[in-house]
Amino acid sequence: MYLKENLTAYKTILIKEILRFSRIWLQTIIPPAITMGLYFIIFGQLIGSQISDINGHTYMDYIVPGLIIMSIISSSYSNVVSSFYGTKFHHHIEELLVSPIANITIIAGYVSGGVARGLIVGLIVTIVSLFFTQISIHSYAITFFVAILTAILFSLAGLINAIFANSFDDITIVPTFILTPLTYLGGVFYSIEMLPEFWQNVSLINPVLYMVNAFRMGMLGVSDASLGVAILIIISFIILLTSICLGLLYKGVGIKK
């Protein structure tokens, strides 16, 4: 079996997810574009004009990839965490549990929904950035590949958060206390070469740094980390988080009595 049935089920979850965030586009699509637009104005134009070039690029150009990948990270994460926790809270997770759908299909469906929202928001932020600077993409393939892998990774992280969450507070704790600091300290606004050596080494522990820099490599052709290492780290995390999700769904943690 069941490949055909599971493919239909996968498409069903994906369409459901896309319709869900499209219905509430004012909450899901527009806010990141406005926030990032403000970053472009304040950090890029006002403050950035006082900062010298980094790795041969103006400060505005340098932060564009970081802000795009930051919006992809937060959108894909928040899409899955809020949607999946919503299905638990309103009990329609039972629709999935009763059905013969495979756990991997559930994961793939929700993660793809997160990726879809992440990429749409990323595209809109890219369009917004065009009002402030001209972007010439160094490598479309690397840019797109890293964007998708990053969105997959943070969608998986959002799913794990949702599985464990017991209240709406629980779905905001991780983004507030872990995700946002890691992203801000992940080289979105600066190159780690600007840091003292000790803090450079500390920064290398932060996985988000590799995603930001891999994406920057795709867009600008410059990076603080090796592209190969970055992709290896992202894929390793994807495999790890997928395995954790499968284990949690199999045991019914957070979703079954």
Partner: peptide, 14 residues
């Protein structure tokens, strides 16, 4: 949509 989604979970095409 609730009904169509439910059918989809069982592999029934849209």
């Amino acid at each position: 949509e609730i009904l169509v989604n439910q059918a989809g979970y069982y592999g029934v095409n849209r």
